[in-house]
Structures are given as structure tokens and as C-alpha cells.
């Protein structure tokens, strides 16, 4: 499976439209049983994971047969205003498009395409240095 974003730098502003394309390859159409597409954010770091699915849809076996796997398929959704991507000391907040493919034999194949959700003024939030009034 591969997922490609409409922007090379993978950076989207809050509230913007996310557009991406996905394609399944090296798997025969008969083996496919279902596919889940989600746009989500999750945390990484020392704490337990928080995960929130912003956009989700599932394609069943019949829908996949109808769509076929030869063509690129599109995903589109409006991104929320928050939470923004963040790289901190204890917490990393990452946005991604996650595809979960269900194939014969109860096997699952997962593919992720991360992207950055930034503020309207741009820039990924990160932990800054300490400042004093003179600085």
C-alpha cells in the first residue's frame, strides 16, 4: 500500500483541506476483505498513547471489488483547528493517514503517511528554550 500527500513537504495549515491518494499493490483483488482509512492524531513519548480519529471510512469487500486496485484512490477531508503537530520533550503529537487493509487469513496490513498540522501562521510547535526578561 502506498499513500501520497498532495503536498511534498507534508505540511498543512489548521482548517485546511487535506487531499491524498492511496493505492494497493502486490495483493490480488480476491484476497482483499476490507480497508479502513483514517485521518488521526496520536501521541508518542513517555506517557500512555492518546489517539483521536478525525476522519474515518471503511470499504467492504464488495466496494473494494467495485473500485478495483489499479487506479489511485483519493482521500479528502477538512482538517481541524487543533491539536497542532508538536515535538516536545515528553510528548510528541503526530498526525497521520492510516490505512488498515484486511486480507485473507485474518491478516492485517497497516500503512501510515505522517503529515504536519501547523497553525495558520506556519511553523511546527516545539519546546522552546528558557527565557529571561533581558532576552
Amino acid at each position: 500500500m502506498n499513500v501520497s500527500l498532495c503536498r511534498e513537504d507534508g505540511t498543512y495549515e489548521a482548517g485546511e483541506q487535506l487531499k491524498a491518494k492511496w493505492r494497493i499493490s502486490r495483493v490480488s483483488l480476491e484476497q482483499l476483505q476490507g480497508l479502513e482509512v483514517s485521518v488521526l492524531w496520536h501521541t508518542e513519548g513517555k506517557g500512555d498513547e492518546d489517539l483521536h480519529v478525525h476522519h474515518f471510512y471503511r470499504l467492504g469487500e464488495a466496494e473494494l471489488q467495485e473500485l478495483g486496485i489499479d487506479d489511485l484512490q483519493a482521500i479528502s477531508c477538512k482538517l481541524p483547528l487543533s491539536p497542532l503537530s508538536y515535538h516536545g520533550h515528553l510528548i510528541h503529537l503526530r498526525w497521520c493517514i492510516r490505512l488498515r487493509l484486511f486480507v485473507e487469513g485474518r491478516r492485517e496490513i497497516v500503512a501510515e503517511q505522517p503529515f504536519h498540522l501547523v497553525s495558520c501562521r506556519g511553523g511546527i510547535a516545539s519546546n522552546l528554550t528558557h527565557r529571561s526578561p533581558s532576552q
Partner: peptide, 13 residues
């Protein structure tokens, strides 16, 4: 400053 993280509350973070 600019480029700072906003307030955020999850279940564990």
C-alpha cells in the same frame, strides 16, 4: 512568542 504549543489535554497527556 510565536511557534509555541497551545494548551492541550488528552486522556494521558
Amino acid at each position: 512568542p510565536e511557534n509555541i504549543m497551545h494548551s492541550f489535554v488528552g486522556s494521558h497527556n
